[in-house]
Simulated scan of single mutants.
Amino acid sequence: MPSRVAFAAILVAVVLWGLAPVATRYLVLNADPLGVLGIRFALCSLAYLPVLPWLRLGTAEWHRRSWWLLAACGIVGVVGYNVPMTLGIRDVHAGFAGILLSTEPLWIALLSVVVLKHRLTAPLAWGLAVAFAGVVTLSVGNGLAVSASMFGGAALVLLGAFMWGAYSVAVGPLVRRYGALRVSAVTMWIGTVPLLVICAPGMLSTSLDATGWLVLFLYGLGPNLVGMLLWNFGLSRVPGPRAGLLLNLYPVVSVAGGVTLLDEPLTLTTLLGGLIVLVGLLLSQLRSGSGAASEEPAKPARPPATR
């Protein structure tokens, strides 16, 4: 059975990420979206500098092939996820962005089957189906204002969700080999370099009040630093599809945060959708006759350097 500590780490990461659309929407409505994004990741990258001496980056254990995968994970996880999500959330409510981002478990499950040859158990498949039904219910109950800009924003947020699914599948072998802290730091630094190039003009013109700067600081250290560490730690001990199921809590947290902090609408249908999502999560944790082994790859997933 996967470690309870690992599940708890993933759960805390998901709660932090569920609040991220709330913080992002607050910030992008008050400042340049890319400028805020660049400052946030600059803070995160600086926060990792104290661990640099313990990473042993120049040693032989960091294989050349692993560096290619680390670079891909850094670009996909930092730039590929955050840029479209930040730009898209200008045109959708925080709660609806959370709903769209909760498609991440579907991308993780599908990519795990295709790339890592995972086999989905019946409870996990049912859990995905029921949780997705809850996501649809949340969407219907969230009072969407249909417009061209909303569709464009939704498409960008969905692209970010796919990118995070790809990152989660690719980073698993790396965190099992090198550890969550080392991989989190390296991928953060690699991904932040091109991000700062993209965001530099907006960073120079960003202006926020005291509350905005506090939100930006907490957002950077919460979801991006602590959340990334906890997620990578959890992925080193929990199969990707099962870990991804917990991402279905994303819209529940986002809708609650949007209602509480941004005065976004709340309906009975929204509450029902959140309940269905929770039922789906419970179903996914049931054990099938074949046991948890069926969630693992048919063949051990090794880092690229050992193939």
Rank of each mutant, 00 (worst) to 15 (best):
M1I: 10
R4C: 04
V12R: 01
D32Q: 09
S45P: 00
L57M: 14
H63T: 13
R65E: 07
S66L: 14
W68R: 15
L69K: 14
A72Y: 08
G88M: 11
R90F: 13
G98A: 03
L100A: 00
T103F: 15
P105I: 05
V115Y: 11
K117E: 07
H118D: 14
L124H: 02
G127M: 08
G127T: 04
A131H: 08
T137R: 03
A148R: 12
G152I: 06
L159Y: 11
G160D: 03
F162Y: 13
M163F: 10
A166I: 00
L174Q: 02
Y178C: 07
A180Q: 06
S207D: 15
L208V: 09
D209M: 08
T211E: 08
Y219H: 09
P223N: 01
L230T: 06
N232P: 00
N232R: 01
L235S: 02
S236A: 15
P239E: 07
P239R: 05
P241Y: 04
A243K: 09
N248R: 12
N248M: 12
P251E: 02
V252N: 00
S254K: 08
V259T: 02
T269A: 12
T270M: 11
V277N: 10
S288Y: 13
A292T: 15
E295I: 01
A298P: 10
P300F: 10
A305C: 01
